[in-house]
Design a protein around this nucleic acid. Structure first.
Length: 419
RNA sequence: GCGAGCGUAGCCAAGUGGUUAAGGCGGUGGUUUGUGGUACCAUUAUUCGUGGGUUCGAGCCCCAUCGUUCGCCCCA
């Protein structure tokens, strides 16, 4: 009989790795909180049309990557492939706009996409994301980008680059799309086959094709930045200026195209030079049309998401984090002593110590070996004789000093030894 | 969904058709039955991801399947 294993593209995050996750979550939530963002938790599954309408039916994410199933009530349900649609749905449903001003929200959690797993890409993966709803100011775009760079900096990451583009308004994109088609169509036969398909479906994507020939052709293609209307142009210029004011370096990348339909104007990615092909660590942008598209009142918004697995790959290369060790390792032998040790351990925990109780029942030698391996500073020893005399032995594992003390004095002695 | 590589113990691995599957780390037991970190000894895979096939004989060759890695696609 074969053992049951985790589903393809999913991973257990074992205790050794969890430390990195906790570190990342703590760092991010502190920075988000400082910027007045509040955490929101939305369901992991939603009605399928939310994503179809929100992300766009023509996108790959919706077209071929969603975990969609019919539930027992015959409803079409989808495991969320990204976080924004759910947050926006919640924003509309709970009338969060009623508070008048802007709404600053962040989330973290599992997302699901049916893709071929590879380094930095799983079927169940995790994102930390942020959404700023209700402001169309360029300052909002920059605030959001600055928070992302702050988080990455606080984590100590290097070799990152912020790629910046504007995909303009819907109208801008229409005119640009036509201009691009006019340019590319004569070269149609020289494009790679994927790009030929995209000519009709999504010509903007051709720009970041990895095919050599296509790249050469795309080299001289018109740039979207030349097709921005006055408002879009002005907005984008301001974003650039403000980023410079904050000394946040960026690279203009007119070929940066985001794969989800809801993006407008500012689009950005933060990519790492230390990952493989899946190098985008953070991606986001403005999505002014999404709230109304999902049935809310016209609300401008910006946001991003960070791929946590990818970040953790980078963190692991930086500094190794070691797991928590107990302050005290508790050795006991003999039934009375064992039972009483449980009581003392509980009291010590209530007093704030991290206590690991040896439950093996094996001889002292083995228990001491384990105490050494546990990484604890102090070893407590309780045996038959100590129980009878109301005493306990306190051993300092760092210098091997050991003394027998009265159980009433234990806390006192421990405060002297620890810290 | 497509292309390529890989899959031997908890981990790192040697082994490329011929009797019993190197070694290291780790684990467990002991030397040391109330005292750790060292040392020494012993032990730790009836079996090479799984299922078929070729062969007198397969971890090694072939096919399928699953998993994994890299690339494409796509995205965080």
């Amino acid at each position: 009989m074969d053992n049951i294993e985790a589903i393809r593209g999913t991973k257990d995050i074992l205790p050794k790795k969890v430390i990195y996750w906790q570190y990342l979550e703590k760092t991010a939530s502190e920075i988000l909180t400082k910027a007045a963002y509040q955490e929101i938790r939305t369901p992991i599954f939603e009605q399928t049309p939310l994503f179809e309408r929100g992300i766009g039916e023509a996108t790959d994410v919706v077209g071929k990557e969603m975990y969609t199933f019919t539930d027992r009530g015959d409803r079409s349900i989808t495991l969320r492939p990204e976080g924004t649609a759910g947050v926006v749905r919640s924003y509309i449903q709970n009338k969060l706009f009623a508070s008048g001003g802007v709404e600053r929200l962040w989330y973290s959690g599992a997302m699901f996409r049916y893709e071929r797993p590879q380094a930095g890409r799983q079927r169940q993966f995790h994102q930390i994301g942020l959404e700023l709803l209700g402001s169309k100011a360029a300052r909002a775009d920059v605030e959001v980008i600055a928070i992302a760079t702050d988080i990455l900096k606080a984590l100590g990451l290097k070799n990152l680059s912020l790629q910046l583009n504007s995909v303009g308004s819907k109208e801008d994109r229409q005119t640009y799309r036509q201009a691009l088609l006019d340019y590319l169509t004569p070269y149609k036969d020289n494009l790679d086959s994927d790009s030929q398909d995209r000519l009709s479906r999504n010509p903007l994507r051709i720009l970041d094709s990895k095919d050599k020939k296509t790249q050469e052709i795309a080299q001289n293609a018109p740039s979207i930045l030349d097709y921005l209307g006055d408002d879009s142009r002005h907005h984008f210029d301001k974003v650039c200026t403000l980023l410079s004011d904050l000394s946040i370096p960026y690279e203009l990348n007119p070929r940066l195209v985001r794969g989800l339909d809801y993006y407008t104007h500012t689009a950005f990615e933060i990519i790492s030079g230390d990952l493989g092909a899946q190098a985008t660590v953070c991606g986001g942008g403005r999505y002014d049309g999404l709230v109304s598209q999902l049935g809310g009142v016209e609300t401008p918004a910006v946001g991003w998401a960070i791929g946590m697995e990818r970040l953790i790959l980078l963190l692991e290369k930086l500094q190794p984090l070691s797991p928590q060790t107990p302050d005290i390792y508790f050795v006991s032998r003999g039934e009375k002593a064992e039972n009483y040790a449980l009581v003392i351990a509980q009291n010590l925990r209530h007093s704030g110590y991290k206590v690991e109780l040896d439950l093996s029942g094996s001889n002292f030698l083995k228990q001491f070996k384990r105490s050494d391996r546990s990484g604890a500073k102090i070893c407590l020893v309780l045996g038959e004789s100590e129980v009878e005399q109301g005493m306990i032995q306190v051993k300092n594992l760092e210098n091997s000093e050991q003394k027998t003390v009265s159980q009433d004095k234990l806390l006192e002695i421990l405060t002297q030894l620890i810290n």
